[in-house]
Amino acid sequence: MEGLRQYVVSVTTAAIICGMLTATLNKGAVQSLVKLLCGFFLAFTFLSPIGRLNLKILPEDFGLDYEEASDAAQEGERFARNSIAQIIKEQTEAYILDKAAEQGLSLEAEVFVSGDEIPIPKSVRLTGQASELERGRMEIILEKDLGIAKENQIWTG
């Protein structure tokens, strides 16, 4: 960029100098000669740097930076996924508590959601008093309705 700017400045300066020079001379052979020399000078100024011109006009941080773009997009994707996972956790817990209440149980439920792209309930920790029969019924309900395998249902209390 700096090289390009200097090139433009040098061409402009050369043009101004040539213009002022030819304007100060009276019409005649001298002016014609000076005009010719100015023409060569301008052509030289204009053309010679082109060969060694550093066309690095793009700034250091330019780039269709897909990595950065991908990071920004993934941030949003992650946020949405986490929001959905939060809702699923809370609504699944509410569902479990409703089902427990139907069975006459008073339980606390903590659902753990999978870290996959589509979050689904993976395991649950249930806290409260329940007989073996009642636990068995809840386990069937949780496995059938929510897809939480028996081995992923942890009973405490």
């Binding site: 773009a69 997009a73 993934q74 949003g76 994707e77 946020f79 949405a80």
Partner: peptide
């Protein structure tokens, strides 16, 4: 804006728009 658009599911579009 990129994160918000990606959160809506338009991951490819948001990344391309961001880069450009």
């Amino acid at each position: 804006m990129t994160a918000a658009l990606a959160a809506q599911g338009a991951v490819g579009t948001s990344a391309a728009l961001y880069a450009a």
